[in-house]
Design a protein around this nucleic acid. Sequence first.
DNA 1: CCCTCCGTTGCGTATTACGGAACACGATGT
DNA 2: ACATCGTGTTCCGTAATACGCAACGGAGGG
Lengths: 260, 260
Amino acid sequence: MSNNGEARDPALVQSVDRAVAVLELLARNGEAGITEIAAELGVHKSSASRLVYTLQARELVEQDGERGPFRIGIGMLRFAGAVTGQLDYVRVGGPVCTALAERLGETVNIAVLDNDVALNVSQAWGSSAVAAQNWVGQRTPLHATSSGKVLLAAAPPAEQDRLLSGELESCAPRTITDPVRLRTVLRRTAEDGFATCMEELEAGLHAVAVPVFGSQGDVVAAISAAGPAYRLSQKRMPAIVEELRVASRDLSVRMGHPVL
Amino acid sequence: MSNNGEARDPALVQSVDRAVAVLELLARNGEAGITEIAAELGVHKSSASRLVYTLQARELVEQDGERGPFRIGIGMLRFAGAVTGQLDYVRVGGPVCTALAERLGETVNIAVLDNDVALNVSQAWGSSAVAAQNWVGQRTPLHATSSGKVLLAAAPPAEQDRLLSGELESCAPRTITDPVRLRTVLRRTAEDGFATCMEELEAGLHAVAVPVFGSQGDVVAAISAAGPAYRLSQKRMPAIVEELRVASRDLSVRMGHPVL
DNA sequence: CCCTCCGTTGCGTATTACGGAACACGATGT
DNA sequence: ACATCGTGTTCCGTAATACGCAACGGAGGG
């Protein structure tokens, strides 16, 4: 990765941009040392050290004791709180996710459309998956996730064209990379009112999603259940979709969008 | 506020420090314009504009449309996810908070000891409080909150002495600022197994907290309920404490600390 | 005990971010 | 309709500032 080949926007404040890059690196790796950070960003150790020191002073970064690798710090919760205060999905969606996750025993997520990707804003773990991955804040491709398909299927035609204009990246062996086939799938999604995703994002991972409606009947988010392929079988899908629909209506009501 | 009177640490990277200050300002105010930000930080408009632009490019800051005030951006969720992945209280505590908040109809928080303050790591809103404040990530003084008292009462004597060595800041008319009186309260807290906070943080705000125990029987966190004084009356306290204790045990179990 | 690896500290330089002023764009109000 | 105010952005010259370098101080490992 090192120094990005593409010339960076000169209007950017370099050190701030680097500092955020440090945070993103830590969010991705979990933890890292100064040397590793410096190598990854393509800067000198001393520069990395100062950046981290500054972030540490603000508690955005922390380390185990006096010595050791660095992680994202607790001070970040301040900002997380600020964003949840605005995004109703997070605040209101939490309880809905939790309830559904417990009922299904699978991981439940709420995602919204953010630019060209599906952004997971809320998550609850099913009883079974202890070591399940944390998807909150993760951006996932629209064409390779159940939530993404739901959001995509509901987008206005012009927007849909724009989103499908680029290459469809292959994430797993069964990812749909053919635009024509994807459009067929999206049409069916719009008709059925739900979308599935069978090992298209990750091998062995199945998921199913339904839309969440806003006050004008527009799709504002998607709620999905995900789990290992053997547990989310084709046969079980209808039952899960029904549960998801109930949760979706619950969510809509809680967000002040009475059922139409 | 403007330029801090105290000379800043020269080892800090100035622009990064300022950028974080922007984020903290936004987290505090909810939203702000460039001019306001510049004034608050004591920098020129152009400087503020560049800082915000850089943060915006990384989606840590966003604005309504093309024009308008800035807020904390959705990209912040990436980091929020990274910290929740480490802090079990957040992940596991969420459902517990939600359940209790629904049952009580009041706001429920989980807080841990972070340096010299109580840090709220998880929160759920009660049905009644629509416009309630978001405390997640907020640092609250140990001597003026119910959670703080619980955490303080459980701290080893040496640590307790250290934490009480400074001045006890007065947050509201009824804040306990007398160290002697506070120590008496803390003794009672340790005996009773819960602490209250009656208009000591904010006028009209009552709260009550109980400890959450770790595997060694040590106090690792506090769970509290808060609400308007007229609703959290003295009479209602015993019932709430009982509910809190149930939730606390639930939380301990979920975190892998079987009841002793 | 030496050697290696990691992170920090001083230092000189030139990159870089800053502040100033002019500019562009809407929103107001008269 | 126009003028005026208040936004936020852009350009530019300067010097403050952050960078890279190299040397240093500590931990751990052989």
